[in-house]
Computed example of a mutant assay.
Amino acid sequence: MNIWAGAVAGAVVAGGTAIALMASSSSIVLTAASLQVGRARIERRFVGGAEAFRGEDVRRVRGPELDARAFMNFRASVGPVVRIQIIDPVDPTPYWLTSTRHPERIVEVLNAG
């Protein structure tokens, strides 16, 4: 009986963990009207250029060069980041810095206009 109780408890914990991980993962949604990173959203007209970073450059932009006013969205399991300039004159946030598996693609789309 204890083996079955342990198996059921293990399945419940594994299922709960999987659901929590899926719910906590943030997505990047880019449309003609807006950019959304996780729960944060901004109109596209306030989005400037973007830069991709990989490897040692990630440590540099996430560490010594990081502006404390920036919006940050990091995932430990995703190494590369993209820095997206915010050009809203009333927004004190200079840029968004977010983890992504495809930073070059986001840079390509944002910098294309």
Score class of each variant (00 low, 15 high):
60 R>F: 05
67 D>S: 09
68 A>I: 00
25 S>Y: 14
83 R>Q: 14
42 I>W: 15
88 D>A: 10
36 Q>A: 06
11 A>R: 00
54 R>W: 00
81 V>I: 13
37 V>T: 06
26 S>T: 14
37 V>Q: 03
102 H>T: 15
38 G>M: 01
77 S>V: 10
43 E>G: 07
90 V>I: 07
51 E>I: 05
9 A>R: 02
80 P>K: 09
76 A>H: 02
105 R>N: 11
95 Y>Q: 02
16 G>C: 05
23 A>E: 12
70 A>C: 07
46 F>H: 15
89 P>G: 02
99 S>L: 10
48 G>M: 13
91 D>Y: 09
97 L>G: 04
31 T>E: 06
57 D>Q: 14
37 V>C: 05
63 G>I: 07
111 N>T: 09
82 V>I: 13
75 R>N: 05
34 S>V: 12
31 T>Y: 10
54 R>Y: 01
74 F>E: 09
72 M>R: 14
69 R>A: 14
59 R>A: 14
101 R>L: 10
61 V>Q: 03
93 T>Y: 00
46 F>L: 04
16 G>I: 04
100 T>Y: 08
107 V>E: 09
13 V>D: 08
24 S>W: 13
33 A>S: 13
50 A>E: 08
91 D>L: 11
98 T>N: 01
31 T>A: 03
52 A>S: 11
63 G>T: 06
21 L>N: 06
79 G>T: 11
9 A>H: 01
10 G>P: 02
88 D>F: 09
